[in-house]
Design a protein around this nucleic acid. Structure first.
Lengths: 332, 332
DNA sequence: TCATGTCACTAGAACGATCTAGAAGCGTGA
DNA sequence: TCACGCTTCTAGATCGTTCTAGTGACATGA
């Protein structure tokens, strides 16, 4: 049943239309240099045969691939949002996206190699875990844009959100509501956990408050665990490393019979889809995935097409106040 | 800074090693036909120059690409789990994976075209929404495997989980716990919502029970809404369309002051990562993503390498009983 | 000694597109 | 009439591989 017939080539179309291969190439590319009548004739023949240009051959000849490689972690919902936005921005700029998934069994380097093999003209890496040196090695081959992480050395571009400013806003928000005893459940070894930790320390210190930090992580489980250890000395507000941790934290507080935000305010980070769920309504710091993604794509395209040196773009996050933060109880 | 020097080719390596291009090609492919000493000499030269085979040229010449196209929906965590497993299975079979994301702004056809342009030798589509006819058109070009959906016509392969059996197990589980008043919150227009609906009707009917069905969907919000409409005539158990819906449902029940599973048992579907979260512990029907993914990859590879006709693989799901299902209260 | 086979290697033609250089057709002005 | 420029079209080289068909060297067996 499956007709495994050879797929038509430029040559076939050329013969069908009675012109040369070169002219068919011109028409298919939409390049100038073909009379309108011939153009139509060729297009008709191509449609008739079901011709589809062979990108391998095309790309081999014309060093341009118009392809951006994007690596992301499967399982990070926040990354998925970035992928969405990146698709839109890339296609608006006339580029296609090659996706590479990083999973537990598939290290980042392997994903990057695959993206390069596809012919990516630039790489956009979401929260890369490679060292600056390793990144620099790739950056010698193609422009590399690190997304959500900015300590990547001079040869790699970066587009990130201002972690300090995000935490400052978080502290500011809670303090202005009247909170004084605020705890930060950190991100452990996750990318950008450290800058947030130190930002928290600095901003609390600046206000003369005690910067209590508890070990956490990037997942619900981490928030759960942190929530339990909070027990004896319960603060009036908690800033979680991210939304997923915040969700686990809230769950743990509930289990302890505490109400959010009546007894404890909880602030997330990322403003992910979880935060927006109607039954969660998590107050969160938004890094604005679509904007970041667009900026990263723009940066990659600029590097490909221009001769600009690598640069570091930092965007300011913003606070999205929902239902999990409020003024502390009178006795707090 | 960025040295934009031409990347080395087979020719460069050949000259450096003092042999012919063909021999370098043989060595790089690990093909037989080269003396060990020469092999080493060539490999050294290649390493020295930082040679990396140009996949475009390679693929152009050897019609084989060893590439499987996989389309998935960003935002579906369950799909991400499949992607993970597919990567592992594909690489075990010596294939690379090309990922294509389907988003709201990027229809399935566009994703498929992109995957074909990359040179995919077969397509694996997770829950495709195209009609059988449209799928058949693509199936004329390359083998197409539909994952999680099996009503795809004769020309398209499919790997799916037995929805009837899944629902049967769900009903069986709840009935054996002592439940009689069971409601199914369905998946609305989602893929495989219909087979689950009718399976529920049949299995309840077979037991002489009333098959109550409430309109739902695939997201938390849908479960929330359904949960509210349950109000006046609360059943003792609910089978949700999937885990996300189940989560919303549980949240809605909680808001109504009901305890799960003491007052109402809730059963999910997919056994996704959400179900496994320690604070959720959702009982669920597992479709076993890794197994399904592996089966789909196997099927695709078999179709590529053999001459088998399209086929439909159906796997049996299994029940994972956790903490959200229990015997109904005495008065129930 | 000579056909035969095996092994290591090579020259040159593919693959299917794009690109360069140039040819053909046609109108225009000197 | 001829040179010139413009538009439209074509032949052939080219991209970096793999594949086909072979070549030469050497060993083997009759």
């Amino acid at each position: 049943m499956t007709e495994q017939q050879r797929r038509p080539t430029l040559m076939d179309v050329a013969q069908a239309a009675g012109v040369s291969r070169a002219l068919v190439s011109i028409v298919m590319r939409g390049a100038p240099g073909a009379a309108e009548a011939t153009r139509q004739k060729v297009l008709d023949a191509a449609r008739e045969l079901g011709y589809r240009p062979d990108s391998r051959a095309r790309l081999l000849r014309s060093t341009r691939t118009k392809l951006l490689g994007l690596s992301f972690s499967t399982g990070h919902a926040f990354h998925a949002e970035i992928v969405d936005a990146a698709y839109a921005e890339a296609s608006a700029k006339g580029y296609e996206l090659a996706l590479g998934g990083v999973t537990s069994g598939r290290p980042e380097t392997q994903t990057i190699e695959a993206l390069l093999d596809f012919g990516s003209e630039a790489l956009i890496l979401i929260s890369p875990t490679l060292s600056s040196d390793e990144l620099a090695r790739y950056a010698g081959q193609v422009p590399v844009v690190s997304l959500l992480r900015n300590d990547v050395g001079e040869l790699t571009d970066s587009v990130s959100s201002d972690d300090y400013e995000g935490i400052r806003m978080a502290v500011e928000h809670l303090v202005s509501l009247g909170h004084r005893r605020i705890v930060h459940v950190d991100g452990g070894t996750a990318v950008s956990a450290e800058p947030r930790r130190s930002a928290f320390r600095a901003e609390m210190g600046r206000r003369g408050l005690e910067p209590a930090i508890i070990a956490g992580g990037a997942m619900e489980e981490d928030g759960m665990t942190a929530g339990k250890s909070l027990g004896p000395d319960m603060p009036t507000a908690v800033i979680a490393f991210n939304d997923r941790s915040a969700l686990g934290l809230i769950e743990s507080l509930r289990a302890q019979g505490l109400k959010v935000p009546a007894d404890v305010s909880v602030l997330g980070y990322d403003d992910s889809q979880f935060a927006r769920l109607s039954y969660v309504q998590l107050s969160s710091i938004s890094q604005d995935a679509p904007l970041l993604a667009a900026a990263a794509v723009d940066r990659a395209v600029a590097r490909i097409e221009g001769t600009q040196p690598p640069g570091h773009v930092v965007r300011t996050p913003h606070l999205v106040a929902r239902r999990t933060t409020a003024a502390p109880a009178a006795g707090g």
